[in-house]
C-alpha cells in the first residue's frame, strides 16, 4: 500500500509528512518529525508517556494513526512554554522536584495542561483521577500532584 500524505499543524507550525497507513501519530512525531519529547512506554495506551493534544483534546499518541491528524492542530511537550518563560506547570514541576528520571514528565505536563484548560481549580482528587492514566514509577506521585496544584494556583493569579 502506498504512503498517505498528511498536512497538519504541530506546535503552531504547518507540517506535511508521508506515513504508512498503520503508523501511529507517535511514530510520525518521533521518527518523521524528529519530535522525541513524547515517549513510548507501552504502545497500548496504558502509560500516558506519549500524551499529546489534538485540537485541545488529550490523547495517547500511540493509539492515534498518523493519517488521522489531517487538518488538525497537534500539541506536544515541545510546544509548551516559551524559550524565555517556562509554562507554570514546567516551572512548578522543577521547583517541587516532581521528577526523578523524567521519562513520564512530558506526558504529565501535556496531560495536566489539558486538565487545567477545562478545570482551572481542580481538587487534589480531581488531579489524581485525571492523571491516573500517566504512570510514574519514580516519585509515588506526591510531588507531581503538589506541583500541578501549585501551577493551577499560579495560573489563577494566586500568590504561591
Amino acid at each position: 500500500m502506498s504512503k498517505i500524505h498528511v498536512s497538519t499543524q504541530v506546535n503552531g507550525d504547518q507540517v506535511e509528512f508521508l506515513c504508512e497507513p498503520e503508523e501511529t501519530l507517535l511514530d510520525v512525531l518521533r521518527d518523521h518529525l524528529n519530535l522525541t519529547g513524547a515517549k513510548e512506554g507501552c504502545g497500548t495506551g496504558d502509560c500516558g508517556a506519549c500524551s499529546v493534544t489534538i485540537d485541545g483534546r488529550l490523547v495517547a499518541a500511540c493509539l492515534v494513526l498518523g493519517a488521522e491528524v489531517e487538518g488538525s492542530a497537534v500539541e506536544t511537550v515541545e510546544g509548551i512554554g516559551a524559550p524565555d518563560a517556562l509554562h507554570p506547570l514546567q516551572r512548578q514541576i522543577l521547583q517541587h522536584a516532581a521528577l526523578q528520571c523524567g521519562i513520564c514528565t512530558p506526558g504529565i505536563i501535556v496531560a495536566a495542561k489539558a486538565l487545567l484548560a477545562q478545570n482551572p481549580d481542580p481538587s487534589e482528587q480531581e488531579v489524581r483521577y485525571w492523571l491516573a492514566g500517566n504512570l510514574c514509577r519514580c516519585t509515588g506521585y506526591d510531588k507531581i500532584i503538589r506541583a500541578v496544584l501549585a501551577a493551577a494556583g499560579e495560573m489563577r493569579g494566586e500568590n504561591p
Binding site: 518521533r30 522525541t36 519529547g37 515517549k39 513510548e40 515541545e78 522536584a97 514528565t105
Partner: peptide, 23 residues
C-alpha cells in the same frame, strides 16, 4: 538546600535524550 536540578529544563521541555531518542 533545594536548588533546581541542572538537567531539569531539558526534562520539562522534551529535549532530554533517552535511550530510544537517538538516531
Amino acid at each position: 538546600t533545594r536548588p533546581i536540578r541542572p538537567d531539569g529544563l531539558d526534562k520539562v521541555t522534551g529535549k532530554a535524550m533517552f535511550g530510544a531518542d537517538k538516531s
